[in-house]
């Protein structure tokens, strides 16, 4: 047996099935550009001449959700758009991942207004966050590489890694007024001895 294996040499590779499947998946991510605003322009820049996204195996932008496995949400998502986003996410076939690109998609960014959803991770699962307003194309490429690592490290053939997650991923989010209330409490606790002129 050992003799026969030796004869085969480099033509045989020992690996786990999970790992092989993940390797294949991570190197052929087909993005679905859900570009709504400014970040969409940087997404275009990332896929065009100077920063060539195809070097990383994901230049095949497909605008039909049925053909994609990576959704890049680039730009703010507002009340009217969120049902569309959720529907497109549900139309994508497994396995699928989501990159939330830019401050607006991650947290609402500078738009803390009545119509902007304060972070898409409240309503759909997100795998990778990119900060920046808008992020540079290099940052998008970095996120893509990180996502590839994540797929390699956690991926399984039967997508059991997705079944474990019960809630949308991402940081725990507060309501804006909640944050303000907490800050005010802290200020009252901390600031009195320092800033009160009578002391």
């Amino acid at each position: 047996m050992a003799q026969q294996l030796k004869q085969l040499g480099d033509s045989v590779l020992w690996t786990k099935l999970d790992s092989a499947a993940s390797w294949a998946r991570k190197n052929s991510l087909w993005p679905m550009p859900f570009a709504t605003a400014c970040c969409g322009i940087e997404l275009m820049a990332a896929s065009s001449s100077r920063h060539d996204l195809s070097r990383f195996g994901s230049e095949v932008m497909r605008f039909s959700p049925r053909q994609c496995d990576l959704m890049i949400v680039a730009g703010r998502v507002v009340m009217k758009m969120l049902p569309v986003l959720q529907r497109i996410w549900q139309q994508m076939s497994e396995p699928k991942w989501c990159i939330s690109m830019g401050a607006c998609a991650c947290t609402g960014g500078v738009f803390d207004t009545y119509s902007v959803v304060q972070g898409i991770d409240r309503f759909i699962p997100v795998d990778m966050y990119i900060p920046g307003c808008p992020p540079r194309p290099e940052q998008l490429i970095r996120a893509l590489l990180d996502l590839q690592d994540k797929i390699q490290n956690t991926g399984t053939v039967h997508f059991t890694e997705f079944a474990k997650r019960e809630t949308p991923e991402g940081p725990v989010v507060f309501e804006a007024d909640e944050i303000a209330r907490i800050r005010n409490q802290d200020r009252m606790k901390l600031s009195l001895p320092i800033y009160n002129p009578r002391h």
């Binding site: 605003a37 730009g75 507002v78 009217k80 758009m81 569309v84 738009f111 207004t113 009545y114 119509s115």
Partner: peptide, 28 residues
């Protein structure tokens, strides 16, 4: 209206210098 984000409402809150960051994102 799929990208209506309340620019004009923000313009009533932010001052003349701060609002520059918002108008930037208008015609991006």
């Amino acid at each position: 209206g799929f990208l209506h984000s309340g620019f004009e409402k923000l313009g009533e809150v932010l001052d003349f210098n701060q609002y520059v960051t918002i108008v930037d994102r208008m015609n991006y």
